[in-house]
Design a protein around this nucleic acid. Structure first.
Length: 435
RNA sequence: GUGGAUGUAGCUCAGCUGGUUAGAGCGCCAGAUUGUGGUUCUGGAGGCCGGGGGUUCGAGUCCCCUCAUCCACCCCA
């Protein structure tokens, strides 16, 4: 044996036994999104690193340290990066396809792996799956409400209750700038009592001072200017429209001024969905409006809005509630069980058993057989363990007579049937309509 | 990047203050008279005790280093 090669840090292998749970999440996402008129998009798992550098900020930690980058070959230089999120790629594809000119209004959804090079911990992996949706081409606040409602519906259909929708507005760029200036003016003479992180944040991103968790800093934030004081009339009306639309949908959001996205391209609406039961890392979903992103990526000015759900925290929230239930997973598990298990009595029957198995499969049934040379007893044992409904036995006598012995593995009843009527008989025993 | 905890069979774990050939349960494989499963019984395979170094007559057990995992911080698209 050669030395073992470990799996990459922060990743996991999803084995057949894990897949029912994963597929439930994926199918729920697909169902909810397609029902609401969203079309699926699949963009590359890697992009030019500049795409993310431009959308997330050149000098940010994110780009410098947390991106999976791969040097590009050739003289062009530069690097590829595994996508850390889905929005940038979707917006890039939107621009590249020229949709802003030929069909500007688009509703998209996606679900797939994302990557970030960070030290793994609870609810945080280097490769993880996100479900997201983006709407391009409309500035209406109803879009934001539809998106928030969509993601809440996704959670509800998984059985998650008691989740909290937290909303806020970032205002328009002009409002943000005015507020940022006011914050810098406010804090410039008051950095003495702050933690070292806050002093760095003051230079890089003043807004981050507001959600510092150090106790003395929290106290020092009292009396700082609020965005509300600088919010323009249009942004204010937009936020009110968002809240009104949510109310019409029966949603009761919590106003949370603490949601302050550091990225420049966010505008107006921001929201998060939290599971209060999860403690510190309670965010399951983040979303908001990014009216400047498409333009930033070389397209015409195009309003846009979206959200992304992390499957990892969603799974944690489900697990905390004992979900999903066995009943919900049953349809997925059933797909992993053969309907018919074919048993060969002697070695001379094995090739005929293989042919019979294929015949059943071609008829659309899940059929399997022993490929380990087990004796009949072992084959029946395997049939039970695999959860097969029926066993189809083929021995010298049956072959000579052109028959098969069908056994219902639950009741133990056996019937001898001619090959010609086998399929109908199997379907009847399985409770399916005869073809 | 910083700190803490943990690494013994495929999985969950025992191994008392260092002492002979390292154990259990589950799982896996096989048998219980030769063409019939789920239960039971019996047997079997499977461990360089994460890796390296040190202390000792002797190390799974003590010390150091290293790697990995988990947790927290940082950061969060």
């Amino acid at each position: 044996m050669g030395p073992k090669i470990p799996r990459p840090r922060g990743t996991r292998d999803l084995l057949p036994e894990d897949l029912p749970r994963v597929r439930l999440l994926e199918d729920t996402a697909r169902r909810v999104a397609e029902r609401a008129g969203f079309g699926e998009v699949r963009t590359p798992l890697f992009e030019d690193v500049r795409l993310f550098a431009r959308t997330l900020g050149e000098a940010s930690d994110v780009v410098e340290k947390e991106m999976f980058a791969v040097p590009r070959r050739g003289e062009a230089g530069g690097a590829w990066a595994f996508r850390p999120e889905g929005t940038a790629g979707a917006a890039r594809a939107y621009v590249e396809a020229g949709l802003a000119q030929r069909a500007p209004f688009q509703k998209w959804w996606y679900c797939g792996p994302m990557f970030r090079y960070e030290r793994p911990q609870k609810g945080r992996e280097r490769q993880f799956v996100q479900f997201g949706a983006e709407v391009f081409g409309s500035a209406c606040p109803e879009v934001d409400a539809e998106l928030a409602d969509l993601v809440l519906t996704f959670f509800e259909e998984l059985g998650l209750s008691g989740l909290e929708l937290r909303v806020n507005t970032m205002g328009d760029p002009h409002d943000r700038r005015a507020w940022g200036d006011a914050l810098r003016a406010h804090f410039s003479g008051r950095l003495d009592g702050r933690c070292s992180d806050c002093r760095t944040r003051f230079e890089r991103n003043v807004f981050r001072l507001l959600d510092c968790k150090v106790e003395s800093c929290v106290d020092a934030n009292v009396g700082a200017p609020t965005l509300d004081q600088y919010l323009g009339a249009e942004a204010r009306a937009h936020f009110e429209g968002f809240l009104a639309a949510l109310a019409a949908l029966g949603r009761e959001p919590v106003r949370d001024p603490g949601i302050v996205r550091g990225l420049d391209y966010y505008t107006r609406t921001v929201f998060e969905v939290h599971d209060p039961g999860l403690g510190a890392r309670s965010a399951l979903c983040g979303g908001g409006r990014y009216d400047r992103l498409v333009e930033e990526l070389g397209g015409p000015p195009t309003p846009a809005s979206g959200f992304a759900v992390g499957f990892t925290p969603t799974e944690a929230a489900l697990e905390a509630r004992g979900l999903p239930t066995a009943a919900v997973l049953e349809p997925y598990r059933a797909l992993q069980r053969p309907e018919v298990y074919v048993v060969a009595i002697t070695d001379e029957d094995r090739s005929a058993a293989l042919a019979l198995t294929r015949e059943l499969r071609r008829a659309g049934l899940r059929a399997d057989l022993d490929l380990k040379g087990r004796r009949p007893k072992g084959q029946f044992k395997e049939a039970s363990r695999r959860g097969a409904r029926l066993a189809a036995t083929l021995g010298p006598e049956e072959r000579a007579a052109g028959e098969v012995v069908l056994k219902d593995l639950e009741s133990g009843e056996e019937v001898r049937v001619p090959r010609s009527t086998l399929l109908d008989r199997v379907r009847r025993l399985l409770g399916a309509p005869p073809a």
